[in-house]
Simulated scan of single mutants.
Amino acid sequence: MSDAFTITDEQQDYSQYDLNANPFPYSPVPAEDPEIYCGQQHVSDKISSTVSSMLSTGKSKHLVVTGKYGNGKSHTLKYTRSLLRDRDDVVVGYVAQPGEGFLDIYHEFVYDLGFNRLQELAYEFLASVARDITDTNPIGASGMESLIDDGDVLLSEIVPEAIRRLSDVTKFADFARAIIHMVYEDTNLYAWQWLTAEGIRYEQRKEMEIHSALDDDTMGVRAFTALKNMLLELGYTGIFVFVDEFESIARLSPKDEQATLNSIRHLMDQNSSGLCMLFGCAPEVWQDVMSEYHAFSERIGEEVALKPLTSENLCELVRDYLDQERVTSAENEGIDPFSEEALDLILQRSQGNIRQVLSMCSRLLDDATESQENKITTAWVEEKL
């Protein structure tokens, strides 16, 4: 009896199309750091204006990016995030969806920053204190860590003053203690759990002299504001928060939805500088938010809508993906092996939905490769789709 199917790790050969590989994703989910952004100019302009305004003035500014499922909201947010991550004067965090309330948003944001980044910030703050009260001049987190590891600076010498200063800056003594405990080997995991709002036992809090639990939306707003104020004290321009799939708040009870929106509104009210929030949201949910929760929607003020792809957008998108895997110079290759007429049909079938376009192109290119087709034509697309 022959095998029912064959599994192999042998890659397909796309050399007949001058390609190293199929550049289109098999599962068109946005990459963590997208290299390609086929933007619509009005969207790019609005996002650039919002981000640049905060960077240049320090004043908080917020934006909602709307668009139907598959039209590129997540891709847009992740692409913008990837550009900002290259800067050393801001802290950037991504929230995949708002969860059950603001505390979940806070948790996901801090978790996206990561343990190591938060520990670096703790060392940076200690360095700023050490420069003032010791004869040392540590540069950055690594410089401070080295001085402590070498015994040139004793934690007992600078920690009390660091906690005092950070408490003054953040107006949140428990947050200050948790941040400073990120540098202690025996308590840094407890500190991390407290700072991410995962919850720790009373005994663990007592060991760090932390008196409160970070367990509700009000405390989440307070901790978020404390983190931002610490960053401004360290010389950062501010925080960028990307909240994706914001439409999922519509599945919450009316009470929980209002509580979540109120908490975000309070966060914005308490942070007139150093905060930029970008939301990705389905248009129908955002319309409901604007009509029912004026106090929240007025804080954001601006919305930009992603529209379905046009024929020109589609050609540019396909060309950019193909160029990633071109064996030789892509100068004259364009959209080959796709014909313009084939792309028009793909556009028609997908109704300009980017996710569907990428999925179709990926499948059609593989099918054409297996069948040794010279060109992906309208007839071929009609047959396969």
Rank of each mutant, 00 (worst) to 15 (best):
residue 3 D to H: 11
residue 4 A to V: 13
residue 7 I to K: 13
residue 9 D to W: 10
residue 11 Q to G: 08
residue 18 D to V: 03
residue 18 D to F: 09
residue 18 D to T: 04
residue 18 D to W: 05
residue 19 L to V: 06
residue 22 N to V: 01
residue 28 P to F: 02
residue 32 E to A: 07
residue 33 D to H: 13
residue 33 D to M: 09
residue 34 P to E: 00
residue 37 Y to V: 04
residue 38 C to P: 06
residue 41 Q to P: 12
residue 47 I to V: 15
residue 47 I to L: 10
residue 48 S to P: 06
residue 49 S to D: 14
residue 50 T to C: 12
residue 52 S to M: 11
residue 56 S to W: 12
residue 58 G to S: 06
residue 62 H to V: 02
residue 64 V to D: 06
residue 67 G to S: 05
residue 67 G to V: 03
residue 71 N to K: 09
residue 73 K to L: 07
residue 74 S to G: 03
residue 74 S to R: 00
residue 77 L to E: 03
residue 78 K to V: 02
residue 80 T to H: 00
residue 87 R to Q: 11
residue 94 Y to D: 00
residue 94 Y to W: 10
residue 97 Q to G: 05
residue 103 L to G: 07
residue 106 Y to H: 12
residue 107 H to G: 10
residue 110 V to W: 08
residue 113 L to G: 01
residue 114 G to T: 03
residue 124 E to C: 08
residue 126 L to S: 01
residue 127 A to M: 04
residue 128 S to I: 00
residue 134 T to R: 01
residue 135 D to P: 02
residue 142 S to N: 11
residue 151 G to P: 03
residue 152 D to F: 08
residue 158 I to A: 00
residue 167 S to A: 10
residue 169 V to G: 03
residue 170 T to C: 05
residue 172 F to N: 10
residue 172 F to W: 04
residue 173 A to H: 07
residue 176 A to R: 01
residue 176 A to V: 03
residue 178 A to H: 06
residue 181 H to C: 06
residue 185 E to I: 07
residue 186 D to R: 07
residue 189 L to Y: 15
residue 196 T to Q: 08
residue 204 Q to W: 08
residue 204 Q to E: 15
residue 208 M to Y: 01
residue 209 E to V: 02
residue 212 S to W: 01
residue 213 A to T: 12
residue 213 A to R: 13
residue 218 T to W: 05
residue 227 L to E: 05
residue 228 K to R: 15
residue 233 E to P: 04
residue 235 G to S: 02
residue 237 T to M: 05
residue 240 F to R: 01
residue 245 E to Q: 12
residue 251 R to M: 12
residue 253 S to M: 06
residue 257 E to T: 14
residue 263 S to T: 13
residue 265 R to C: 06
residue 266 H to Y: 14
residue 268 M to E: 04
residue 268 M to N: 06
residue 273 S to V: 12
residue 276 C to N: 08
residue 276 C to Y: 07
residue 278 L to F: 09
residue 281 C to G: 03
residue 288 D to R: 13
residue 293 Y to W: 10
residue 299 R to A: 06
residue 299 R to L: 08
residue 301 G to V: 01
residue 301 G to C: 02
residue 302 E to Y: 13
residue 309 L to P: 09
residue 310 T to Q: 07
residue 310 T to F: 10
residue 311 S to K: 14
residue 311 S to D: 15
residue 312 E to Q: 13
residue 315 C to D: 13
residue 316 E to V: 11
residue 321 Y to H: 13
residue 322 L to C: 08
residue 323 D to R: 10
residue 324 Q to W: 02
residue 324 Q to F: 05
residue 328 T to Q: 13
residue 329 S to T: 12
residue 330 A to S: 15
residue 337 P to K: 07
residue 339 S to H: 11
residue 339 S to G: 12
residue 340 E to H: 15
residue 341 E to V: 10
residue 343 L to C: 09
residue 344 D to F: 09
residue 344 D to R: 11
residue 345 L to K: 15
residue 346 I to V: 15
residue 352 G to L: 07
residue 353 N to T: 13
residue 358 L to I: 04
residue 362 S to E: 11
residue 373 E to K: 15
residue 376 I to R: 09
residue 379 A to M: 05
residue 380 W to T: 08
